[in-house]
Nucleic acid binder design. Sequence first.
DNA 1: TAGGCCATCTGGTCCT
DNA 2: AGGACCAGATGGCCTA
Length: 258
Amino acid sequence: MDSDAGSTCSRSSSPDLVVDDSAGSFFSNKMFQRYCQESRRDREAGQDGTERCSGGGKTKTRSELSKEEMQDLRLKVNSRERKRMHDLNQAMDGLREVMPYAHGPSVRKLSKISTLLLARNYILMLSSSLEEMKKLVGDVYGGSAAVQSRTAPHPTIPPAATAAHLPLHPLAQSLHSLVGSTPSSLQHHSSSPSSAPAPHSPPSASFLGFHAPVQGLLKDPLHLASSYRHFPGMPCPCSLCQPLPTTTSTLHSLSMNK
DNA sequence: TAGGCCATCTGGTCCT
DNA sequence: AGGACCAGATGGCCTA
C-alpha cells in the first residue's frame, strides 16, 4: 500500500499550519515533489490546450486509462482532497482564534468537535446577552420611547462615575450569572478544586460544560449558556473577563444603579 | 494499553 | 468529464 504517501506530514495541521499560499508549505518533501510534478504536468497540458489524460489528443474514458495514468489521476485526486482538508483546518484555526478560549503555546488547542460546539454555544450566549442588554436599555430609558431619547445622556449619572466599579464586561456578567456564580467569586476561583482539571489537560467536552449528552444539549439552547466554565487556580481564560471599554461598562452601570 | 484525535487515502455521489 | 463534497477505513501520535 502506498497509503502512507502523505504520512510524513506533521500531524499538527493547525498550530504550525503555514498560511503561506505556496503549495510547499502544505506538503512534506515527497508529497511536495509529487505535487510539483503534477502541477508541472498540468501546466504543460494546459499550454498544449489538450486534456492531460488524452493520449493522442482524444480523451480517454477512465477504463481506457493505463495503470500509470490511473495512478496519476489518483495522486491528483488525493492532492486535491488533501488541500481541501488543509483549507478546512485553516478555517477551523480561524474559528479557534476568535473563540473566548485561552490561546498560547502551553495551552492545548481545542479539538475540532470542541471548537464547533463551543462556537455554537458562544453564538447562543452572545445572542442571549444581546437580548438581555436590549432589555436593560429599555428599562433604563423607560420603555419604548427610551431608545429614541438615547441621544441625550442621562443628566443624573456622570458617564464615567461608576465605570470603575464594574471591571467586567457586561457580557461576562450575564454569562457568569447564567453559570450561577458572581463575577467576583469567579475571579477569586473559589469553587471546589475537585472539579478542576489539570492546567494543561486537554479541553475536554466536560471542560466546555457538556455534562449531558450533546443531543440533549442541542434541544436545550438555554442550557448551553453555561458552556464556559471557570476553574480555581487558573487565570480566567475567558476574554469576556478582560477589562472593558468605558462605554459598555457605563451602560451596564446604569442598569446596576437603577 | 486503550481511547481520543487526527491526517490521509479511497470510492461513491452530486453538481457544473 | 472533472471537481467538490462526503463518509468509511486505516494507521500514527499522544495521553491517562
